[in-house]
Amino acid sequence: MSVHSGGGEAVRSGPGRVLVAVYGVFALAATSRAAVQIATRFAEAPLAYVLSAFAGVVYIVLTVALARGARRVAVAACLVELAGVLVVGTLSLADPAAFPRATVWSGFGSGYLFVPLVLPVIGILWLLRGVRRA
């Protein structure tokens, strides 16, 4: 991890801890769910399950980056997450046949109270706010 300059503590303390906690839960949930799906019934919906696994990896990266105060990695991962939820959300509504099984990002995260859609926006706002203050 290269970015520990100055603002690291500002990123991971205070409200940052809540972000780490939420991302931690999502990392755990998405990764283990994808692992089970790929291990037991990959053939049913390969694309959806690979996307679920990818989402899980993004959440793991974000949890670690936020917990270590690696701001640049965290912002990049938030952008990937936001792009993922927007693209997959749109595709899952436009072409439901391509997604016979739900991913975390289907329907813009509607199966998870839209948390996957809101979280990266909050994450980016929090990370950038820290930049200005530091």
Binding site: S13, G14, P15, G16, R17, V18, A21, V22, V25
Partner: peptide, 24 residues
């Protein structure tokens, strides 16, 4: 999750400790 929340609540001695416990 609950032990992790206890650990976090002890580490962050501000309002954001309980905020983590809300999530947990």
């Amino acid at each position: 999750i609950p032990p992790a929340a206890i650990w976090w609540g002890r580490a962050e001695r501000t309002r954001w400790g309980p905020a983590v416990i809300v999530v947990a």
